[in-house]
Design a protein around this nucleic acid. Structure first.
Lengths: 193, 193
DNA sequence: TCTGAAAACTAACAGTGTTAGTATATTGTA
DNA sequence: TACAATATACTAACACTGTTAGTTTTCAGA
C-alpha cells in the first residue's frame, strides 16, 4: 500500500512503546504491525524474527538501566554511591516493570551481543564499589551478590511475594542494602588483614 | 476411546513430568494429552484451563521445595541452619530448574490459594532463623532479604548472567550467605542494644 | 527512463489454548 | 437386572500466535 518509509528503528521504538503500555505478556507481532498500519508479514522486511526484535528491545532496556545507574552514582562515594545505585535500580524496576522484565528474560547464553551488553549492567556496580579497597576477585564476587540482592528483591516484590507480612517493603530494601554495605566493609578489612 | 479412568491427579503428575523433561517453554496441552493417549479437549474434563493446571504444578513445586528445606535444617541451629537452608535452596534450583521456574512465575497476586502456599516457602526460613534473638519485625524483613539473595542468585546463575567473570560461582554464593549471616548477627546486636 | 532494490501486500501453514456439541462407557439406583 | 445419570472421551471448530513464499508496488539511483 501507500508506503510510509518505515525503518527498523521505528519498529523497535513501537515495540518498546507497546511493551511498556500493554505489558510484555500482551505483546504480539500482529498487534504491533496494526499499530504501524502494516501487516504482520511486512515486519519481516525489517527484522529477522521476534527474538531479534526482542533482543533489540533488550539492548534499549539495558542502556536505559545503565544510564539511570550512572546518573545516580555521579559524584558519590562508597556507601552513599551504593545506596544511590540500589535506589536507582529499584526505581527502574518499579517504574518500568515490563521493560525490566525484558532484561531478565534475555538469553545471556548463546548470544554474544547480549553477553557483551551484560557488562553495561555490571559497570555501574563496579564503579560504585571502586572506592572500597577490595581485591579484583572480591569485586567480582560482590558485584554478583549485589545484583542478586537487587534483582531478587525487585522481582519478588513485583510478583507480589512480599505481601505476607505487614512490615514496610521499603524498610526491608534499605535493610538489605545496609547489609550489603556491611559485607563490603567486612571484605575490605579481610583484604587488608 | 477406550476410557482409561484418568484422574485429575494423573494429569497433574504427567504435566510435572513433562515440564521437568521437556522444559517449561516446550510444554503444551496437546503434547500433554498425546502422552496420556487422549485428545487435548479431553483434558478439560479434569481441569478448568491451563492456568489452573499450572497452579497445581506450582503447589507441588512449593511443597517439594519446602520438604527439601525442612529436611536440610533439621537438627541444625543458627549459622549452620542458615547455610544448610541456602544449600538446599540452591540445589533445588539447579537440579530442578524447570519446576523452580514454575514457582517463580506463580501469580501470587489475585489468587488466595497461591498466596497461602507462599507461606510454605517462608516457614523453613523463619525456622532457620528461630535461634537468633530477633524481634518479629526483624524476622519479617530478614526473611525477605534472604529470599531475595537466594532467588536473585539462582535465577541469574540459571540465566547465565554470572559468566562475565572467571571467579567461582559457588564461592560467590557462599560469600553471599556469609554476608547474610553477618547481617543476622548484626541485627541481633541491634535488637538487644 | 529504465532497472533493481526496498517495502508493502495476500495467502497460507503449523502451532497454540479453548469451547460446543456428541457419543460412549461406567457407575449408582430402582 | 434394567435404567438413568454421570464421567470420560471424542470431533470439529474458532480465534489467536509466529512465520514463510510468492507477488505487487513504490521509490531511488544510474
Amino acid at each position: 500500500m501507500a508506503r510510509q518509509g518505515l525503518t527498523r528503528g521505528d519498529i523497535i521504538a513501537a515495540a518498546i512503546k507497546m511493551i511498556e503500555s500493554e505489558g510484555l505478556h500482551n505483546f504480539s507481532l500482529r498487534e504491533l504491525a496494526s499499530r504501524l498500519h502494516i501487516k504482520a508479514a511486512s515486519l519481516y522486511n525489517h527484522i529477522r524474527n521476534m527474538d531479534e526484535l526482542y533482543t533489540e528491545v533488550g539492548f534499549y532496556a539495558i542502556s536505559e538501566l545503565k544510564k539511570a545507574q550512572l546518573g545516580a552514582i555521579a559524584g558519590k562515594r562508597r556507601g552513599e554511591a551504593v545506596e544511590a545505585l540500589a535506589d536507582a535500580y529499584h526505581r527502574f524496576g518499579k517504574e518500568r516493570p515490563e521493560i525490566y522484565k525484558v532484561i531478565l528474560s534475555l538469553p545471556m547464553v548463546k548470544n554474544d551481543a547480549i553477553h557483551r551488553a551484560g557488562f553495561d549492567i555490571v559497570e555501574p556496580i563496579m564503579a560504585a564499589m571502586a572506592d572500597y579497597h577490595l581485591t579484583g576477585a572480591q569485586m567480582m564476587h560482590l558485584q554478583r551478590i549485589f545484583r542478586s540482592i537487587l534483582h531478587g528483591f525487585i522481582s519478588q516484590e513485583e510478583a507480589g511475594c512480599f505481601r505476607q507480612y505487614p512490615v514496610d517493603v521499603g524498610d526491608s530494601y534499605r535493610m538489605a542494602v545496609r547489609g550489603f554495605i556491611l559485607l563490603l566493609e567486612n571484605s575490605e578489612k579481610e583484604a587488608h588483614a
